[in-house]
Write a protein that binds this DNA or RNA. Sequence first.
DNA 1: GTGCCGAAATTGGTTGGACCATTGGACCAT
DNA 2: ATGGTCCAATGGTCCAACCAATTTCGGCAC
Lengths: 244, 244
Amino acid sequence: MDQRSLPPIQTTARDDAVLKALAEFVGTEGLKPGGRLPTERILAERLRVSRNTVREALTRWEGLGLVERRQGSGTYLKAAVSPDMLHLPLTLAGGNDFTSLMQTLEIRRALEAEAAALCAERASEADIAEIARKLDIMEHAFRTRDGMSSEEDWEFHQAIYKVSGNPLFEQIIAAMYELFHRFWEHPLGVRDFGHASFPYHRTIYERIAAHDPQGARDEALKLIATVEDDLKRGVAKLKLADLT
Amino acid sequence: MDQRSLPPIQTTARDDAVLKALAEFVGTEGLKPGGRLPTERILAERLRVSRNTVREALTRWEGLGLVERRQGSGTYLKAAVSPDMLHLPLTLAGGNDFTSLMQTLEIRRALEAEAAALCAERASEADIAEIARKLDIMEHAFRTRDGMSSEEDWEFHQAIYKVSGNPLFEQIIAAMYELFHRFWEHPLGVRDFGHASFPYHRTIYERIAAHDPQGARDEALKLIATVEDDLKRGVAKLKLADLT
DNA sequence: GTGCCGAAATTGGTTGGACCATTGGACCAT
DNA sequence: ATGGTCCAATGGTCCAACCAATTTCGGCAC
């Protein structure tokens, strides 16, 4: 007999029910990201559930990054939420050695290239203008702050991921980014880390603006290649330092 | 002055502290997935916090899929966990199932191609033999069970990811895979789903065995393309059914 | 009237204690 | 050996407070 034909029954699911109700509430109320959710006490009363149960449910949402709680202020929606949303936890083992950093770059190489290509395919004129804006901001920051433009750099890339139409790109690459920068504020002591990648931001943009997927892909690959080179140079430098 | 050099003090972070302590405990205790965590009551006592606080912390871990709670039994570790691990929830906000599935395939397309290329570069003769073995098993299963070989299919791919030398490939693609098969035993009612991809498993293997990265990449892309086609065909079929 | 300050109300965070529902093992009867 | 019963352990829920951060608002100085 097929064991799957007799699944275990689900007897208790209070907090799940709370989340379901809350998702519906957000939908019917037309709540946008940034909006404020009802008080925990009010939710408990309305849903006929203890405040503790409400809190456990909200804790789940907070863990998923859907909601932000501010003590003394309230609970705020951080992302669009609908009842039929999919959540999947991804756990990544990361180390802080050279190999691990290189591995995050291998993932980024694959994803950045694909995202850039998709972006070049799908970008509207408005999208291109927005990316151009982010590029200008980033280039300006780079020139005035002598290469320290990681924040603006990241926003430029985010704009590309967004236009790609696939939120997974941003989420996964952000995870790689986090793994990469976890331990290194100035990776491996290479002062001008990231300088070499600078010109490729504009070339990527140009290929996107020209709706040239293959070109955008190639330029993205070149950009990652410079970062990999920087990383290798940093390691070489470290080994040299070890010998002295 | 760099604002990041002076992070705001964390006056209240009880549950985060609990999770940190718990992660250390799992490490020092050498707890493996499947193992049982201490009772909530015991944790509360040991950590000098209320049981509710312990519960909120565990709820977070449960949401991340790190832990499973069984009423009347205990709390069990579901995945390896160490303090320097990155856990992040992937959120696929896509009302429309088709869109979501297509998005998981876009990620897979990028990663499968890269993994296959890296595998072709780095595979030793022993690696190639192992992949060949998995391929034979999968092909045999496919023929004897008339196309139902998803388990063996997956193992073949896993062997490739493993040889790529980068564990991140398997971790991320596994998440995409999970997302893809979340609802569907037989996706969209397309009976022969996956049949079209069958021949490309062997061509991928051949390119890997020939240490031909670009060839392996191309064949991997073709494989994903067939899956995308199947998906589109399934949707077309659904729309047709709606009209009747 | 304007602007500042402090008290009070609001809200999430934590605590301790109680009870319920489920589980799993010990023990017993057949 | 099988099945039934009881009981202790454990997660799930509830309640009633209190703490800590934030916001609100009224009164005071100017």
